[in-house]
Amino acid sequence: MRFEHKSTVNAPRAVVWAFLLDVPRVAHCVPGVETIESIGDDRFRGVLKVAVGPVRLTLTGEVAIASRDEAAGIAVLRATAADKGAGGAVSAEMRMVVTDGMAPDTSELQIVTEAQVMGRIGEFGQPIIKRKADQTMNEFAANLGRAISVP
């Protein structure tokens, strides 16, 4: 699954860049994130709750900053998470690119996410996860833009 989002953020590039590397703040823009805590070395552990109709998944996993290139404004986050009960896992790589915006003190933010669903959850849960991922990523992009923007 590939998701692409582009938005204009009302904040200068340096502010956006600092925000993107603050993983707990970024994570809290993902709807359903319950907890997120640092475990050192640019790695974080968290819990994401997903509800679709009667289906309730609790995805427990890790997020890591895989790479950062401040000059180019590119940061890559990698996340893996699994639901114990459903015996399935999700992995995602999120590539975030921030550039100067057209207007002063604005930035262009591009987020490209590649996600995979693995394990038994894939058989029956795949349509659920795919639909939900699409909704979640849309909300995440909107939340992120709002959270970063300088009022």
Partner: peptide, 21 residues
Amino acid sequence: AHVMAGGTSLVLMMQQGLIRP
């Protein structure tokens, strides 16, 4: 609580751990 009618889908979703009523 979850309702079971025929059970074809519910049994599968419970087997796969997606629903745990």
